[in-house]
Amino acid sequence: MSAANFNNTNAAARPWFERLDRIDRRWIFLLMFLAVSGPILWIGVTGKTLPEAPTLAARAVFQEIDQLPARSLVLISIDFDPASAGELQPMATSLVRQCAAKNLRMVFIALWPLGNQVAQQTIQNVIRDDYPALKEGDDFVNMGYQAGNEAVMKLLLTDFAKAFPKDSRGEATSNIPMLKGVKMASNFPLLITVSAGYPGSKEWVQYVISACNEKMNFVTGCTGVSAPQLYPYFPQQIVGLLGAIKGAAEYESMVNASLAVDGVATAPKYLQAQRRMGPQLVAHLLMVGLIIVGNVIFFARKRRGAA
């Protein structure tokens, strides 16, 4: 809708619903901007977040990690890049935090080219900053990125070292102490992935989980776009599922509650997802409002047409 049309001379003569229907879409953009930025500023100033009631799928993720014995090996695949970090970084942060707090041994890999850098930042923000006693090579290791998507997964099924011959420090896989007993993917009792699309959670189910014959459990966090497609796998093939920022906020609140210390406030970096639920609320209400207004226009026009 061009500005020229909007300012048509006989615009005033049109009925209200016609004028509303022809509204410049930039006003809708402005509304969306205000709907998202308002709560961000309010939460940023007050520090208040909305309460979260974890759903079954998010609780399953927490419980699956929680029930693992200390020192268990977990394979964490960071399959996203900065483009989806708004949704997925809070999940990755909380997942790594729970694993570190549980003293699980974490092996990071990436099937997205930029996933290696995301993994590195997460390791820095959570492990190095808050769990400095954990030692690289013994308690966690970042194996970096490998090209090949499904073929890397296929290789992981039979030979971990062939799929990831070195870690991000340049150390050969065979020299890494915590990987001494690891031959293949099924040596990990749990696979955790945070994925933005292809290759991601779906491919992990198709190529690894199906082939591992229940030796390896799988929990995953994914974007809103891919979450609906993953529900058919839950809970048989995907034991726990975090869908979109809501899943992240639910899981984050559970991890925070489990690690809460009396009198000590949770570090703000571990409240990222819950903070984002504020703008989410207002923007969703706006979306509902826009759809209702759109339909009011539709029915008003229909009635006028029928008359």
Partner: peptide
Amino acid sequence: FTVMGRIALLAARLEFLFDDWLWLI
């Protein structure tokens, strides 16, 4: 779910502008 995802991404970008750049929050 798609709407939810896109809004989260927008929120992250606006957080960057308001927090890292403008130091408003």
